[in-house]
């Protein structure tokens, strides 16, 4: 990777996304720190970056995930608060809501509660897949775990999420679980 130009380009391309991901998990204040530090850490570790990879995105999200993990208690506390109030005082929302989103937002309380209960490693995989639309393979790469492990973590997390949504019909479980 040619530096520092390459890093400036990487920053311009991914900073907003990384910041948004951290903001949803930790709120804006900590997201400023996490997003900034993600790129500093990435720079410091540039020697270990495999330049054969087509895309730096999983690598950056992996670093961000590790930094977010340092704020585990803050993250969980936030989900608990959200579960109680249903209100999102974290990532100030936009007012425009489309039809399906009303349902989704109504489900936020129970979902937040579930997120607070899920094991940390499971949550890392789940949120990369759900919020950042990573494929399981990419999430595994980001978190430095075998794809099989990522798949079983995601599976476990989704069971918990579905239970929170009141879904009890076992036949719907697993239909698209291995995405």
């Amino acid at each position: 990777m040619r530096e520092p130009e390459a890093f400036a380009a990487l920053f311009d391309r991914y900073y907003t996304a990384i910041h948004g991901y951290a903001a949803r998990r930790l709120g804006h204040g900590l997201a400023d720190d996490v997003a900034a530090e993600t790129f500093l850490v990435a720079f410091d570790r540039r020697g270990s970056y495999d330049t054969g990879r087509p895309d730096a995105r999983p690598w950056l999200y992996g670093i961000a995930s590790n930094l977010i993990a340092r704020h585990r208690r803050a993250e969980v506390r936030q989900y608990r608060a959200l579960a109680r109030t249903g209100a999102d005082d974290v990532a100030e929302g936009h007012a425009d809501r489309v039809a399906g989103r009303l349902d989704a937002q109504a489900a936020r309380g129970p979902l937040a509660e579930a997120l607070g209960d899920i094991a940390d490693g499971d949550r890392d995989v789940l949120l990369l897949v759900a919020w950042e639309q990573f494929a399981v393979q990419e999430a595994a790469e980001a978190l430095g775990i075998p794809p099989g492990t990522a798949r079983s973590r995601l599976h476990r997390a989704r069971r918990r999420i579905r239970a929170a949504l009141g879904e009890t019909d076992p036949t719907t479980l697993g239909e698209d679980l291995d995405r």
Binding site: H19, G20, A31, Q105, A130, W131, L165, E167
Partner: peptide, 17 residues
């Protein structure tokens, strides 16, 4: 809409940094 979509839709798009 599956559970992942619901989970995605339940949180607002984060405000820009």
């Amino acid at each position: 809409m599956n559970d992942l979509d619901l989970l995605r839709g339940a949180w607002d798009e984060p405000a820009p940094p």
